[in-house]
């Protein structure tokens, strides 16, 4: 079980927007862009045991700001990140926020040592999830509807946020410009997909791997779009290992000795 770290909340100004952020931990810096729809993900609590973690609430998704493109939002999050993390950092984005992180890596690559895209939808989106298997729209993003994050009966604010998220996923279109520029990303990159993610076509993952020079793709078994909700331990293990070791995370280092 991941220990819960106390994140302190703050706000940072960028291009006239006041962006909410959460911060915890010490060490090398990780910047994450996240909707924070269901609170602070376990992944960030785990990373904060070893790193300084700064989570920017994606202005478009969590703050109710007018809809803007990932490219435009990336300019804002890059400024916010530069303000909060003057040195180098690893950048993590999830779902729609991964598209923002992708553009941030394209527009402001200098400080980004490693890029982690969790369930990105920029490439070959499918036009939204299939019909929800349960009463909550978010259940359409899961392999197992019972894995829905948050309380079983979400309050009106959370229900509205979930509905907005699913709506946005239906709106997202293939980002041909981002695809054409993937080759510019020079930092170590990890693109993570749930094996049952229906938000992107099965061919999407291989586009990242084929186009980004130093990219690994990882498939999380028995998970849909919301990997954090369905296989949190697997996600923590994978992302922690990648942030620490980057492309060398493929080298095994766990002992298999039994009864030495």
């Amino acid at each position: 079980m991941t220990a819960q770290t106390e994140f302190k909340e703050g706000r940072v100004e960028a291009r006239g927007l006041s962006i909410r952020y959460l911060e915890a931990g010490q060490g090398d810096t990780i910047v994450a862009v996240d909707s924070l729809t269901w609170g602070t993900p376990k992944l960030y609590h785990a990373l904060a045991q070893k790193y300084r973690v700064v989570v920017l609430e994606a202005p478009q998704l969590g703050g109710g700001s007018p809809s803007k493109s990932s490219k435009a939002l990336a300019g804002i999050t890059a400024l916010a990140a530069a303000s909060l993390a003057p040195g180098d950092y690893s950048l993590i984005g999830t779902s729609l926020s991964a598209n923002v992180a992708l553009w941030q890596a394209l527009q402001a690559p200098a400080k980004i040592e490693a890029l982690v895209l969790i369930s990105p939808t920029a490439i070959l989106p499918t036009g939204g999830p299939p019909e929800a298997a349960g009463s909550r729209p978010v259940q359409s993003l899961l392999t197992h509807p019972e894995n829905a994050p948050g309380p079983p009966q979400p309050d009106p604010a959370l229900a509205a946020a979930e509905k907005a998220l699913v709506h946005l996923l239906k709106e997202v279109a293939h980002d041909a410009e981002a695809e054409s520029r993937l080759g510019e990303i020079q930092c170590a990159t990890l693109a993570v997909f749930g094996l049952e993610d229906k938000m992107v076509s099965p061919e999407a993952a291989r586009v990242y791997r084929a186009r980004i020079p130093n990219c690994n793709i990882s498939l999380v078994y028995d998970a849909g779009h919301l990997i954090e909700a369905e296989r949190p331990e697997a996600l923590i293990n994978l992302v922690s290992d990648f942030v620490e070791r980057r492309e060398t995370f493929i080298v095994g280092r766990e002992s298999r000795v039994i009864n030495p």
Partner: peptide
């Protein structure tokens, strides 16, 4: 067709 990593149970 591309190399991948697998995070299973």
């Amino acid at each position: 067709p591309e190399p991948f990593s697998w995070e299973g149970r």
